[in-house]
Design a protein around this nucleic acid. Sequence first.
DNA 1: TCGCGTTCGTTAGAAGTTATAACTCGACGG
DNA 2: CCGTCGAGTTATAACTTCTAACGAACGCGA
Lengths: 221, 221
Amino acid sequence: MVNQEAKTPRERYRAQVRTEIKERAWEQIATAGASALSLNAIAKQLGMSGPALYRYYAGRDELITELVRDAYRSLADTLRAASSRPGADVSTLASALRTWALEDPQRYFLIFGTPVPGYHAPDDITAIASEVMATILDAFAELPPNGTATAFDAHLEEHRDWADGHPAPAATLHRALAFWTRLHGALSLELAGHFTGMGFDPARFYAAELDELTGPKGDGM
Amino acid sequence: MVNQEAKTPRERYRAQVRTEIKERAWEQIATAGASALSLNAIAKQLGMSGPALYRYYAGRDELITELVRDAYRSLADTLRAASSRPGADVSTLASALRTWALEDPQRYFLIFGTPVPGYHAPDDITAIASEVMATILDAFAELPPNGTATAFDAHLEEHRDWADGHPAPAATLHRALAFWTRLHGALSLELAGHFTGMGFDPARFYAAELDELTGPKGDGM
DNA sequence: TCGCGTTCGTTAGAAGTTATAACTCGACGG
DNA sequence: CCGTCGAGTTATAACTTCTAACGAACGCGA
């Protein structure tokens, strides 16, 4: 984002090699998945041999963490950009999310897929995650309230720390949460191929889920 | 299914070693994830060295495929058992699903988690998957219809092959589909730890999602 | 312009992994 | 009783991540 201009030529070189490494890593992940990511193979593709990569990343884990960070950053930027387009609403956000996910399914699964048992995301990554949540919350805050307050709304009212001071009512928090989980449910099953062979169009199902999210009780805009 | 009693003592022994291998594999998967599954480590735990396992499984992939099959089988049996309890309904199914998932999160992710790009599930596994779907469909078929027909319902009516001859109307198919994807959305994010630190109770959110699934329009029993 | 130090990339090697090949030995069945 | 089949062995190849030690080149300051 910032700081594109590095001071010393060595730093420039170093930064450039680091991004080249990540580019190759993304190629590998897109074709064979994150678990098949091989530092050796990346090094060979860059024309250098094996352990040279350790000058740039402490190991496989650090590289993957960096990739997760980039993926989150990309998602947050994509959603933020979509929400700031004129006339943007919740459905704009939803289709931006789906487009982003279809663009590189493995990138999506790197964030929302199977977790590694021991791993805990560093704080800066969770910060980006809450930035994504804030974008969704903003979009729902502009929608008129719908439906009656549920028991879960009351529970949410007592646990609204994650909204990070957002003034929206608990019902809105609830809708944003459902937006996230329902679209993730539809999207992740589609990307994982669980819909293949079922015949129906995943895009239409996604749209149907979105419809029910934006106005199940049938109040207009 | 059948043929539990093996004829020759060698076959008995062979079957017993195969299940012992799978038991160790499940332990490894539960603690370190499926990607960390090591045939060598399993062999050592069984007191035999390395390549001996290849007498029982052609390789890592075949073992994992077998584990996926067992996981699906376990899920299908669990749901079927829950649905056949007296007084069982959709919410019985939902809580059975959640209990099963929490029992061993990595087993859940083995089925519904990040897909391996090249892999295609064998036919018998997809058969078990549709058995699960049938159980969900049966449960919803016993519920009174609710809500108005949506555009997606019409689309589903033309693509109801996956229901495998189930007589339920398209709206019911839609509800069963939403049951699957929404609960998966809530469940997978919870199991992956994306809710940790957000404060609210995942179980209550799950229940809220289920409530909206069983009767959003508010027709009771 | 010249040296010197930082940093990059190399090869070598350890400790893992999956998987194959070849061999030994024991048990089961005719 | 003996032959065959199969289980488990070691040896090996081809991978992987990652550490250690070495050489060379690059660029900064004098």
